[in-house]
Protein backbone atom coordinates (compact mmCIF):
# COMPACT_ATOMS: atom_id res chain seq x y z
CA UNK A 1 0.00 0.00 0.00
CA UNK A 2 1.59 3.25 -0.98
CA UNK A 3 0.63 6.75 -0.18
CA UNK A 4 -0.68 7.48 -3.62
CA UNK A 5 -2.97 4.54 -4.23
CA UNK A 6 -5.75 5.96 -2.08
CA UNK A 7 -5.09 9.46 -3.24
CA UNK A 8 -8.05 9.50 -5.57
CA UNK A 9 -10.46 10.18 -2.75
CA UNK A 10 -9.86 13.87 -2.30
CA UNK A 11 -13.41 15.16 -2.53
CA UNK A 12 -15.01 15.88 0.85
CA UNK A 13 -17.91 13.54 1.38
CA UNK A 14 -20.41 12.58 4.04
CA UNK A 15 -17.98 11.85 6.93
CA UNK A 16 -16.68 15.40 6.89
CA UNK A 17 -20.16 16.87 6.74
CA UNK A 18 -21.09 14.74 9.74
CA UNK A 19 -18.02 15.91 11.64
CA UNK A 20 -18.79 19.54 10.91
CA UNK A 21 -22.41 19.16 12.00
CA UNK A 22 -21.31 17.51 15.27
CA UNK A 23 -18.75 20.25 15.83
CA UNK A 24 -21.38 22.92 15.19
CA UNK A 25 -23.54 21.34 17.89
CA UNK A 26 -20.70 21.14 20.43
CA UNK A 27 -21.41 24.51 22.16
CA UNK A 28 -25.04 23.49 22.63
CA UNK A 29 -23.90 20.25 24.22
CA UNK A 30 -21.41 22.04 26.43
CA UNK A 31 -24.18 24.24 27.83
CA UNK A 32 -25.80 21.12 29.27
CA UNK A 33 -23.15 19.09 31.03
CA UNK A 34 -20.01 20.25 29.25
CA UNK A 35 -18.03 23.32 30.17
CA UNK A 36 -16.38 26.37 28.70
CA UNK A 37 -13.20 24.39 28.96
CA UNK A 38 -14.50 21.87 26.42
CA UNK A 39 -15.15 24.68 23.97
CA UNK A 40 -11.68 26.15 24.48
CA UNK A 41 -10.16 22.72 23.98
CA UNK A 42 -12.11 22.21 20.77
CA UNK A 43 -11.20 25.71 19.59
CA UNK A 44 -7.55 24.81 20.07
CA UNK A 45 -8.08 21.59 18.10
CA UNK A 46 -9.82 23.41 15.23
CA UNK A 47 -7.07 26.03 14.99
CA UNK A 48 -4.37 23.36 14.89
CA UNK A 49 -6.52 21.56 12.33
CA UNK A 50 -6.58 24.63 10.09
CA UNK A 51 -2.81 25.05 10.43
CA UNK A 52 -2.33 21.40 9.48
CA UNK A 53 -4.85 21.67 6.61
CA UNK A 54 -2.56 24.36 5.22
CA UNK A 55 0.49 22.17 5.73
CA UNK A 56 -1.21 19.10 4.33
CA UNK A 57 -1.79 20.82 1.02
CA UNK A 58 1.96 20.67 0.33
CA UNK A 59 2.71 17.61 2.50
CA UNK A 60 -0.07 15.23 1.55
CA UNK A 61 -0.64 16.40 -2.01
CA UNK A 62 2.73 17.87 -2.96
CA UNK A 63 4.90 15.39 -1.04
CA UNK A 64 6.89 18.22 0.57
CA UNK A 65 7.87 17.50 4.19
CA UNK A 66 7.97 21.07 5.51
CA UNK A 67 9.17 21.62 9.05
CA UNK A 68 8.68 25.37 8.86
CA UNK A 69 4.92 25.73 8.97
CA UNK A 70 4.97 26.83 12.61
CA UNK A 71 6.82 29.90 11.38
CA UNK A 72 3.86 30.82 9.12
CA UNK A 73 1.59 30.21 12.09
CA UNK A 74 3.85 32.52 14.09
CA UNK A 75 3.83 35.24 11.41
CA UNK A 76 0.03 35.24 11.56
CA UNK A 77 -0.20 35.30 15.35
CA UNK A 78 2.61 37.80 15.93
CA UNK A 79 1.43 40.25 13.28
CA UNK A 80 -1.94 40.55 15.00
CA UNK A 81 -0.36 40.71 18.46
CA UNK A 82 2.28 43.29 17.50
CA UNK A 83 -0.24 45.59 15.80
CA UNK A 84 -2.50 45.30 18.86
CA UNK A 85 0.49 46.04 21.10
CA UNK A 86 1.19 49.32 19.27
CA UNK A 87 -2.50 50.16 19.38
CA UNK A 88 -2.42 49.69 23.16
CA UNK A 89 0.71 51.81 23.55
CA UNK A 90 -0.62 54.40 21.14
CA UNK A 91 2.71 54.54 19.31
CA UNK A 92 3.72 53.67 15.77
CA UNK A 93 5.56 50.93 13.90
CA UNK A 94 7.61 52.11 10.92
CA UNK A 95 5.51 55.27 11.00
CA UNK A 96 2.22 53.36 10.92
CA UNK A 97 -0.22 53.27 13.83
CA UNK A 98 -1.09 49.97 15.51
CA UNK A 99 -4.57 48.51 15.34
CA UNK A 100 -6.78 46.01 17.11
CA UNK A 101 -9.14 45.83 14.14
CA UNK A 102 -8.84 42.38 12.63
CA UNK A 103 -10.16 43.61 9.32
CA UNK A 104 -6.84 45.45 9.08
CA UNK A 105 -4.44 43.25 11.05
CA UNK A 106 -5.81 39.97 9.62
CA UNK A 107 -5.10 40.84 5.97
CA UNK A 108 -1.78 42.37 7.03
CA UNK A 109 -0.84 39.08 8.70
CA UNK A 110 -1.77 37.06 5.62
CA UNK A 111 0.12 39.47 3.38
CA UNK A 112 3.28 39.17 5.48
CA UNK A 113 2.93 35.38 5.47
CA UNK A 114 2.64 35.43 1.67
CA UNK A 115 5.81 37.48 1.38
CA UNK A 116 7.66 35.25 3.84
CA UNK A 117 6.44 32.10 2.08
CA UNK A 118 7.45 33.31 -1.38
CA UNK A 119 10.91 34.32 -0.18
CA UNK A 120 11.60 31.13 1.77
CA UNK A 121 9.84 28.90 -0.77
CA UNK A 122 11.98 30.24 -3.60
CA UNK A 123 14.97 29.08 -1.60
CA UNK A 124 13.88 25.72 -0.17
CA UNK A 125 11.98 24.47 -3.23
CA UNK A 126 15.22 24.35 -5.19
CA UNK A 127 16.30 21.55 -2.87
CA UNK A 128 14.92 18.06 -2.44
CA UNK A 129 14.49 15.29 0.12
CA UNK A 130 16.58 15.53 3.27
CA UNK A 131 18.00 18.87 2.17
CA UNK A 132 14.51 20.33 1.92
CA UNK A 133 13.59 19.10 5.39
CA UNK A 134 16.74 20.50 6.95
CA UNK A 135 16.40 23.85 5.22
CA UNK A 136 12.79 24.27 6.33
CA UNK A 137 13.76 23.31 9.88
CA UNK A 138 16.59 25.85 9.90
CA UNK A 139 14.40 28.64 8.51
CA UNK A 140 11.76 27.88 11.12
CA UNK A 141 14.33 28.33 13.86
CA UNK A 142 15.61 31.52 12.25
CA UNK A 143 12.23 33.17 12.90
CA UNK A 144 12.01 31.50 16.32
CA UNK A 145 15.31 32.96 17.51
CA UNK A 146 14.49 36.28 15.88
CA UNK A 147 11.28 36.59 17.91
CA UNK A 148 13.14 35.60 21.09
CA UNK A 149 15.68 38.33 20.37
CA UNK A 150 12.98 41.01 20.00
CA UNK A 151 12.75 42.11 23.64
CA UNK A 152 10.23 44.87 22.91
CA UNK A 153 7.74 42.13 21.96
CA UNK A 154 8.26 40.04 25.05
CA UNK A 155 11.26 38.02 23.87
CA UNK A 156 11.23 34.55 25.31
CA UNK A 157 8.21 35.28 27.53
CA UNK A 158 5.84 36.11 24.71
CA UNK A 159 3.33 38.95 24.81
CA UNK A 160 -0.17 39.50 26.09
CA UNK A 161 -2.79 41.20 23.90
CA UNK A 162 -4.39 43.76 26.24
CA UNK A 163 -6.98 45.48 24.04
CA UNK A 164 -9.87 43.37 22.81
CA UNK A 165 -9.44 42.38 19.17
CA UNK A 166 -12.45 43.26 17.08
CA UNK A 167 -13.87 43.25 13.56
CA UNK A 168 -14.42 46.97 12.97
CA UNK A 169 -16.22 47.28 16.28
CA UNK A 170 -17.70 43.79 16.64
CA UNK A 171 -16.07 42.07 19.61
CA UNK A 172 -16.14 38.35 20.22
CA UNK A 173 -18.33 38.30 23.31
CA UNK A 174 -17.90 34.68 24.32
CA UNK A 175 -15.85 31.56 23.83
CA UNK A 176 -18.65 30.20 21.65
CA UNK A 177 -18.44 33.21 19.32
CA UNK A 178 -14.75 32.60 18.81
CA UNK A 179 -15.41 28.88 18.40
CA UNK A 180 -17.96 29.44 15.63
CA UNK A 181 -15.72 31.94 13.91
CA UNK A 182 -12.91 29.38 13.86
CA UNK A 183 -15.25 26.64 12.66
CA UNK A 184 -16.56 28.78 9.79
CA UNK A 185 -13.08 29.83 8.71
CA UNK A 186 -11.93 26.21 8.82
CA UNK A 187 -14.92 25.03 6.77
CA UNK A 188 -14.25 27.79 4.24
CA UNK A 189 -10.63 26.75 3.72
CA UNK A 190 -11.43 23.05 3.62
CA UNK A 191 -13.91 23.79 0.85
CA UNK A 192 -11.48 26.09 -0.98
CA UNK A 193 -8.60 23.63 -0.87
CA UNK A 194 -10.87 20.73 -1.83
CA UNK A 195 -11.64 22.60 -5.04
CA UNK A 196 -7.98 23.43 -5.47
CA UNK A 197 -6.65 19.86 -5.28
CA UNK A 198 -9.09 18.73 -7.99
CA UNK A 199 -8.25 21.61 -10.31
CA UNK A 200 -5.63 21.60 -13.06
CA UNK A 201 -3.28 23.31 -10.66
CA UNK A 202 -3.94 20.61 -8.05
CA UNK A 203 -3.21 17.94 -10.64
CA UNK A 204 0.19 19.45 -11.31
CA UNK A 205 0.96 19.51 -7.58
CA UNK A 206 -0.04 15.86 -7.11
CA UNK A 207 1.81 14.88 -10.26
CA UNK A 208 4.96 16.64 -9.05
CA UNK A 209 4.99 14.54 -5.90
CA UNK A 210 4.51 11.41 -7.98
CA UNK A 211 7.14 11.88 -10.66
CA UNK A 212 8.90 15.16 -11.40
CA UNK A 213 10.90 13.72 -14.27
CA UNK A 214 7.74 12.73 -16.08
CA UNK A 215 6.12 16.08 -15.41
CA UNK A 216 9.09 17.85 -16.95
CA UNK A 217 9.03 15.52 -19.95
CA UNK A 218 5.43 16.43 -20.74
CA UNK A 219 6.31 20.10 -20.66
CA UNK A 220 5.66 21.37 -17.14
CA UNK A 221 8.46 22.70 -14.97
CA UNK A 222 7.22 22.06 -11.42
CA UNK A 223 9.09 24.82 -9.60
CA UNK A 224 6.67 27.71 -10.07
CA UNK A 225 3.68 25.53 -9.33
CA UNK A 226 5.27 24.27 -6.15
CA UNK A 227 6.10 27.83 -5.16
CA UNK A 228 2.49 28.93 -5.62
CA UNK A 229 1.29 25.88 -3.65
CA UNK A 230 3.82 26.51 -0.87
CA UNK A 231 2.68 30.14 -0.64
CA UNK A 232 -1.01 29.25 -0.48
CA UNK A 233 -0.21 26.61 2.11
CA UNK A 234 1.79 29.06 4.24
CA UNK A 235 -0.97 31.67 4.05
CA UNK A 236 -3.64 29.20 5.22
CA UNK A 237 -1.46 28.24 8.18
CA UNK A 238 -0.94 31.95 8.91
CA UNK A 239 -4.72 32.41 9.07
CA UNK A 240 -4.71 29.72 11.77
CA UNK A 241 -2.08 31.82 13.57
CA UNK A 242 -4.38 34.87 13.44
CA UNK A 243 -7.19 32.80 14.98
CA UNK A 244 -4.74 31.62 17.62
CA UNK A 245 -3.99 35.22 18.63
CA UNK A 246 -7.73 35.93 18.82
CA UNK A 247 -8.55 32.92 20.99
CA UNK A 248 -5.50 32.95 23.30
CA UNK A 249 -4.99 36.73 23.51
CA UNK A 250 -1.37 35.78 24.01
CA UNK A 251 1.46 34.75 21.69
CA UNK A 252 4.87 33.31 22.50
CA UNK A 253 7.89 31.98 20.62
CA UNK A 254 6.80 28.46 21.64
CA UNK A 255 3.94 28.86 19.14
CA UNK A 256 6.45 28.97 16.32
CA UNK A 257 9.17 26.61 17.49
CA UNK A 258 10.06 23.69 15.25
CA UNK A 259 8.41 21.35 17.75
CA UNK A 260 5.11 22.94 16.75
CA UNK A 261 6.02 22.35 13.10
CA UNK A 262 6.62 18.70 13.86
CA UNK A 263 3.31 18.56 15.75
CA UNK A 264 1.57 19.81 12.61
CA UNK A 265 3.24 17.08 10.57
CA UNK A 266 2.07 14.50 13.11
CA UNK A 267 -1.47 15.92 12.91
CA UNK A 268 -1.47 15.76 9.12
CA UNK A 269 -0.17 12.20 9.19
CA UNK A 270 -2.76 11.19 11.81
CA UNK A 271 -5.35 12.56 9.40
CA UNK A 272 -4.11 10.24 6.69
CA UNK A 273 -2.61 12.84 4.30
CA UNK A 274 -4.87 12.03 1.36
CA UNK A 275 -7.89 14.12 2.25
CA UNK A 276 -8.05 17.87 2.55
CA UNK A 277 -10.10 17.59 5.77
CA UNK A 278 -7.96 14.75 7.17
CA UNK A 279 -6.03 17.04 9.56
CA UNK A 280 -9.33 17.89 11.27
CA UNK A 281 -9.53 14.29 12.46
CA UNK A 282 -5.79 14.33 13.19
CA UNK A 283 -6.07 17.48 15.31
CA UNK A 284 -9.02 16.19 17.32
CA UNK A 285 -7.13 12.96 18.04
CA UNK A 286 -3.95 14.93 18.86
CA UNK A 287 -5.55 17.46 21.21
CA UNK A 288 -7.72 14.90 22.98
CA UNK A 289 -4.78 12.50 23.37
CA UNK A 290 -2.68 15.34 24.74
CA UNK A 291 -5.46 16.30 27.17
CA UNK A 292 -6.28 12.84 28.48
CA UNK A 293 -2.70 11.59 28.57
CA UNK A 294 -1.51 14.67 30.46
CA UNK A 295 -4.33 14.03 32.89
CA UNK A 296 -3.08 10.52 33.58
CA UNK A 297 0.66 11.12 33.71
CA UNK A 298 3.12 14.00 33.61
CA UNK A 299 5.19 11.88 31.25
CA UNK A 300 2.53 11.94 28.54
CA UNK A 301 5.09 12.90 25.89
CA UNK A 302 6.78 9.57 26.52
CA UNK A 303 3.54 7.74 25.79
CA UNK A 304 2.86 9.94 22.80
CA UNK A 305 6.38 9.46 21.43
CA UNK A 306 6.18 5.71 21.89
CA UNK A 307 2.84 5.78 20.09
CA UNK A 308 4.37 7.58 17.11
CA UNK A 309 7.33 5.18 17.03
CA UNK A 310 5.07 2.14 17.32
CA UNK A 311 2.89 3.27 14.43
CA UNK A 312 5.80 4.00 12.10
CA UNK A 313 7.57 0.77 13.02
CA UNK A 314 4.55 -1.53 12.89
CA UNK A 315 2.90 -0.01 9.83
CA UNK A 316 5.56 0.38 7.15
CA UNK A 317 3.12 2.36 5.02
CA UNK A 318 2.90 4.97 7.74
CA UNK A 319 -0.32 6.02 9.42
CA UNK A 320 -1.98 5.72 6.08
CA UNK A 321 -1.86 1.95 6.11
CA UNK A 322 -3.51 2.01 9.54
CA UNK A 323 -6.39 3.93 8.03
CA UNK A 324 -6.36 1.68 5.01
CA UNK A 325 -6.60 -1.35 7.28
CA UNK A 326 -9.53 0.21 9.11
CA UNK A 327 -11.16 1.12 5.83
CA UNK A 328 -10.80 -2.44 4.63
CA UNK A 329 -12.41 -3.78 7.76
CA UNK A 330 -15.36 -1.46 7.43
CA UNK A 331 -16.02 -1.25 3.76
CA UNK A 332 -13.89 -3.94 2.20
CA UNK A 333 -16.80 -6.24 1.61
CA UNK A 334 -18.92 -3.59 -0.05
CA UNK A 335 -15.93 -2.71 -2.19
CA UNK A 336 -15.40 -6.21 -3.52
CA UNK A 337 -19.05 -6.71 -4.44
Amino acid sequence: MTLSSVRQLVVPNWPVLLIFVLLALAPVWSMYGGSDFTIRLLTRALILALAAVGLNFVLGFGGLVSLMHASFFGVGAYTVAILAHHDFNGDTLFGLPGTSNLLVSGPAAVFLALVFAVATGALVLRTKGAYFIMMTLALNQMLFFFMIALQQYGGEDGMQIYLPLHLSGYEFGSDSAIYYTVLIVLAFFVFLLSRLVCSRFGNVIRASSENEERLTAIGISPFHYKLVAFTISGAVTAVAGVLWAISQEYVSPADLSWIRSADLVVIAVLGGLVRVWGPLVGALVFVLAEYFLSDITVYWQLVFGLGIIAVVVLFPGGMLSVWATIRKINWGRAHDA
Binding site: R195, L196, C198, S199, R200, F201, G202, N203, V204, I220
Partner: peptide
Protein backbone atom coordinates in the same frame (compact mmCIF):
# COMPACT_ATOMS: atom_id res chain seq x y z
CA UNK B 1 -0.74 25.00 -21.36
CA UNK B 2 -3.42 26.08 -18.89
CA UNK B 3 -2.17 24.72 -15.62
CA UNK B 4 -2.63 27.73 -13.35
CA UNK B 5 -6.35 27.03 -13.14
CA UNK B 6 -7.41 26.79 -9.53
CA UNK B 7 -11.14 26.21 -9.44
CA UNK B 8 -12.63 23.97 -12.11
CA UNK B 9 -12.78 20.29 -11.18
CA UNK B 10 -10.82 18.38 -13.83
CA UNK B 11 -12.67 15.12 -13.25
Amino acid sequence: GHSMWFWKNTS
